[in-house]
Design a protein around this nucleic acid. Structure first.
Lengths: 341, 341
DNA sequence: GTGAAAGCGCTAACAA
DNA sequence: TTGTTAGCGCTTTCAC
């Protein structure tokens, strides 16, 4: 790459002012005489001067760039969060370095390190849990981190999400209240914090409330979304279950289609509630009854929160976060469609 | 943000060598005596030194960051391209600044300017057309640009895509060969290059080949994906059409469900072929017959091509691009599912 | 209101 | 094989 041709120095020389003055007008510093400003602006336009953000970043120690770790862009759930993040980021003139972690802990660590090397001003982390190494990485840095759309094992991290416990409990109760005899819970992994500490307890609470015994065998794991959900259709039937709350829409769609293809009538013989509020839920036939989530807003609020943390005094913010817990819990909803009675 | 505590200088002092030597070992320069390297590496580890990529970028004029313009991350089509891009980018140690253009020309321009200000080493552009302003922006810069997953009005830009003309022609022919009497074409906008110069001519070629008259009224526009496709179900029937090739899966899914909800049997009374090869096509019932596209590969190849352009001599590359056309056309396919006879 | 000058942390000749 | 020395383009005191 060749040397940048027109720099702040070129402009300064051409406008017969100092670099400092050019810098001031570029940055909207009010301490510039209007006519000086006008002159500089003219020269900038004439020369088509564009400030070099890298140089600015080095000098100011701010890059107006945030890092966003996403398990998978092709998952509509995370993509909708990312859209909310990006919109607010753009609004605040931030750019976002977006990288897939492929839901792989090693890659997540590497990705975060790379972002920090690039001196991002903040990080939004999407994912279900954080390894000790990654946690150390976060702790050793002054860069604020916000978790969006899940709950991790690090309760100290500011997090924007819905109340997964309550949502799961409500959905389970709904099923129980609507003639379901035996309700299954289908989640990604029993080991993640969001499931272990929120969804499973919520599910169990609903069962207990209804006077039912909890049976761990009715909790199913499915990772690979649609296909695994489809395959699950057989397994799940053999357990005598006649309803399920499924946390992921891809899995739910697979389960629904798998069931249908086996001649099981949904919702007559089997009811399904899904939990991600993705487009998928409206495309299937029957359409899936869903716990709704303000996905876009979760992303947007996470980014807003991050801007606050980035601007406030770092230590103070961290303090506030840790102690008061600057986490945000947004309201979820429920839309009855065709997969429930 | 406070001054970075441990810099290349700290390491140099601690290891009793010069900054240059530290720089060499960090960058894998072989001209370092093994024991010196070892010593430096030790100090780096001990101090947990992390090179500052911003400073490196300023000094080397390379940021190992590419800009990616995406119309919408929440569209699975583009998300899959982005996944391919990101994977290859990671492989080559590039980060990606990803920004939604919302399919808005003004925003696309602004986004690109912002990326260039951040000194990205290259840009991957996803979108259907380029405004004169944006084209000027590209031309005035030395940053290589690759278009992925579409065809723009700028034929000089290296582009990675499938053969939209042929794909459309084949799909239309398939419908005609399978008892369709009157075939519609449903696209986003008649005005974009990819439709105006590729899909529409392909569609018309198939009709002519079959000895049918072309009727512009059988070409429908739908933008807002699913909902507009759903609404289209009524309109399209009134024209006596009994089959359609739909370029976008969201629209196709909407059309299918709209038709079904009106009691039209697919494929018996109406056949549909869709063109984006998105997950959606497998989730609907009946499942949608589809022109398949190597979406991930389109993104991956685009990123590979970009790395070549970024490494080669800039001018030379640009020359080669313009003259030989370094564009890549990948093979598409066809999967018959349930929405065709 | 404006300018001079010292960095920011690193790379890259050029010497040695 | 290693060190010295300029920058890269900008921000930011600190004077004036």
């Amino acid at each position: 790459m060749k040397k940048q041709s027109v720099t702040i120095y070129t402009v300064a020389r051409e406008a017969r002012v100092s670099m400092a003055t050019v810098s001031r007008v570029v940055n909207g510093n009010p301490n510039v005489k209007p006519e000086t400003r006008k002159k500089v602006l003219e020269v900038i336009k004439e020369l088509n001067y564009r400030p070099n953000a890298v140089a600015r970043g080095l000098a100011s120690k701010k890059t107006t760039t945030v890092g966003v770790v996403i398990p998978s862009v092709t998952n509509d759930y995370f993509a909708r969060l990312a859209l909310g993040i990006d919109d607010i980021a753009s609004m605040y003139k931030y750019n976002m370095i977006l990288t897939n972690s492929d839901a792989d802990d090693g890659k997540a660590l590497q990705v975060v390190r790379s972002m920090m090397a690039k001196q991002v001003d903040g990080i939004i982390f999407m994912g279900h849990d954080i390894t000790p190494e990654l946690r150390t990485e976060f702790e050793n840095s002054t860069v604020p981190v916000v978790v969006a759309g899940s709950m991790t094992n690090d309760a100290d991290l500011p997090t924007v999400r819905i109340d997964y416990h309550k949502a799961t409990q409500e959905a389970t109760k709904y099923l129980l209240d609507h003639a379901a005899k035996k309700v299954a819970l289908v989640i990604g992994s029993k080991a993640t914090t969001v499931n272990k500490d929120f969804r499973i307890p919520g599910y169990q609470a609903a069962l207990k409330e209804a006077g039912q015994e909890v049976d761990d065998k009715l909790i199913f794991e499915a990772h690979d979304s649609y296909n695994e959900g489809y395959a699950l259709a057989k397994t799940i039937q053999s357990t005598g279950v006649d309803a399920a709350f499924v946390s992921d829409d891809g899995i739910a769609a697979g389960l629904l289609n798998g069931l249908t293809d086996q001649g099981v009538k949904v919702p007559d013989d089997f009811q399904i509630i899904t939990g991600n509020d993705t487009k998928l839920a409206e495309v299937t036939r029957p359409m899936l009854t869903t716990v709704t989530q303000p996905l876009y807003d979760i992303g947007a609020v996470a980014m807003r929160l991050l801007t606050k943390l980035m601007n406030g005094d770092q230590e103070e913010s961290k303090e506030a976060t840790t102690i008061e817990g600057s986490s945000v819990i947004l309201a979820h909803g429920f839309v009855k469609r065709q997969s429930t009675k």
